[in-house]
Measured scan of single mutants.
Amino acid sequence: RHRTTFTSLQLEELEKVFQKTHYPDVYVREQLALRTELTEARVQVWFQNRRAKWRK
């Protein structure tokens, strides 16, 4: 699998949602996936990684 490189616009969208909730439900993730043109799975993994980073 290749590494997904996020654009600054995608990161902006993702971070905006992360500020509101660290655990977006499937509906929120789907909406975010559509807005960022990423798959829902990529969005889910981004949140997992972002939460790990936040905990440190």
Rank of each mutant, 00 (worst) to 15 (best):
R1W: 08
R1M: 14
R1F: 15
R1D: 06
R1Y: 10
R1I: 12
H2D: 15
H2P: 09
H2M: 12
H2R: 11
H2G: 14
H2I: 15
H2K: 15
R3Y: 13
R3S: 15
R3Q: 15
R3P: 12
R3E: 11
R3T: 15
R3L: 14
T4I: 15
T4D: 15
T4L: 10
T4V: 12
T5E: 14
T5S: 14
T5I: 09
T5L: 07
F6R: 05
F6V: 10
F6H: 03
F6M: 09
F6P: 06
F6A: 04
T7V: 04
T7D: 05
T7W: 00
T7C: 04
T7S: 08
T7Y: 00
T7K: 01
T7H: 02
T7I: 01
S8F: 09
S8N: 07
S8Y: 07
S8V: 11
S8T: 12
L9D: 13
L9H: 13
L9S: 14
L9W: 13
L9T: 13
L9E: 15
L9G: 12
Q10P: 04
Q10I: 05
Q10T: 02
Q10R: 03
Q10E: 05
L11T: 10
L11V: 13
L11K: 08
L11D: 14
E12P: 00
E12C: 05
E12A: 12
E12L: 10
E12M: 11
E12I: 07
E12W: 06
E12R: 10
E13R: 01
E13F: 01
E13D: 06
E13T: 05
E13I: 09
L14P: 04
L14A: 03
L14F: 01
L14T: 01
L14V: 00
L14S: 01
L14N: 00
E15R: 02
E15P: 01
E15Y: 01
E15V: 03
E15W: 03
K16G: 06
K16Y: 05
K16W: 04
V17C: 12
V17G: 03
V17P: 00
V17I: 09
V17A: 10
V17Y: 04
V17S: 05
F18D: 04
F18T: 02
F18M: 02
F18S: 02
F18L: 04
F18N: 00
Q19H: 13
Q19D: 09
Q19Y: 04
Q19C: 09
Q19K: 08
Q19A: 14
K20C: 07
K20D: 10
K20I: 14
K20V: 12
K20A: 08
K20G: 05
K20Y: 06
T21H: 10
T21A: 04
T21R: 01
T21M: 06
T21D: 12
T21K: 02
T21L: 06
H22A: 09
H22F: 05
H22D: 07
H22S: 07
H22Y: 02
H22M: 13
Y23N: 12
Y23I: 00
Y23D: 06
Y23K: 05
Y23F: 08
Y23L: 04
Y23C: 09
Y23V: 04
Y23S: 07
P24E: 02
P24C: 00
P24V: 01
P24T: 02
P24Y: 00
D25Y: 00
D25A: 05
D25W: 03
V26W: 15
V26R: 12
V26S: 13
V26L: 12
V26E: 11
V26F: 14
V26G: 10
V26K: 15
Y27A: 15
Y27H: 14
Y27Q: 15
Y27M: 13
Y27D: 12
Y27K: 13
Y27T: 14
V28Q: 14
V28L: 11
V28E: 12
V28F: 05
V28K: 06
V28Y: 05
V28G: 03
V28S: 09
R29G: 02
R29N: 05
R29M: 15
R29D: 01
E30C: 06
E30V: 08
E30N: 13
E30R: 14
E30G: 08
Q31N: 09
Q31S: 11
Q31L: 08
Q31M: 06
Q31D: 09
Q31A: 11
Q31Y: 05
Q31C: 09
Q31W: 08
L32S: 02
L32Y: 04
L32M: 02
L32Q: 04
L32P: 00
A33R: 07
A33S: 10
A33Q: 03
A33H: 03
A33K: 07
A33L: 04
A33P: 03
L34I: 12
L34W: 06
L34Y: 08
L34R: 14
L34A: 13
L34F: 12
L34V: 13
R35D: 04
R35I: 11
R35P: 03
R35M: 06
R35A: 09
R35L: 12
T36C: 10
T36A: 08
T36D: 01
T36Q: 02
T36M: 14
E37F: 07
E37D: 14
E37H: 08
E37T: 08
E37P: 02
E37K: 14
E37N: 13
E37L: 06
E37A: 13
E37R: 12
E37G: 14
L38E: 05
L38H: 04
L38T: 12
L38P: 01
L38K: 06
T39Q: 06
T39G: 06
T39C: 03
T39V: 02
E40R: 04
E40S: 11
E40G: 07
E40I: 07
E40F: 04
E40L: 08
A41Y: 05
A41V: 06
A41E: 11
A41I: 05
A41G: 10
A41M: 06
A41W: 06
R42N: 14
R42M: 14
R42E: 15
R42A: 13
R42V: 15
V43E: 01
V43Q: 00
V43W: 01
V43Y: 03
V43M: 06
V43L: 08
V43D: 00
V43A: 03
Q44S: 14
Q44G: 10
Q44I: 07
Q44M: 14
Q44L: 08
Q44R: 10
Q44E: 14
V45R: 11
V45M: 12
V45P: 05
V45Y: 12
V45L: 14
V45I: 14
W46L: 02
W46V: 00
W46H: 02
W46I: 01
W46T: 01
W46Y: 02
F47W: 02
F47I: 00
F47V: 02
F47Q: 00
F47P: 03
Q48E: 10
Q48W: 07
Q48P: 02
Q48S: 11
Q48T: 11
Q48G: 05
Q48Y: 06
Q48R: 10
Q48F: 04
N49T: 10
N49W: 11
N49C: 08
N49K: 05
N49F: 07
N49D: 13
N49R: 11
N49Y: 08
R50M: 06
R50A: 07
R50Y: 03
R50F: 00
R50E: 10
R51A: 03
R51M: 04
R51H: 01
R51V: 06
R51Y: 01
R51L: 04
R51S: 01
R51F: 02
A52D: 14
A52S: 10
A52G: 07
A52L: 07
A52C: 09
A52F: 04
A52P: 01
K53V: 10
K53E: 15
K53F: 05
K53R: 10
K53C: 07
K53I: 08
W54L: 14
W54T: 11
W54G: 10
W54M: 15
W54H: 15
R55A: 14
R55D: 15
R55P: 12
R55I: 08
R55H: 03
R55S: 11
K56G: 08
K56D: 07
K56M: 01
K56L: 09
K56I: 09
K56N: 10
K56A: 11
K56V: 09
K56Q: 07
K56Y: 06
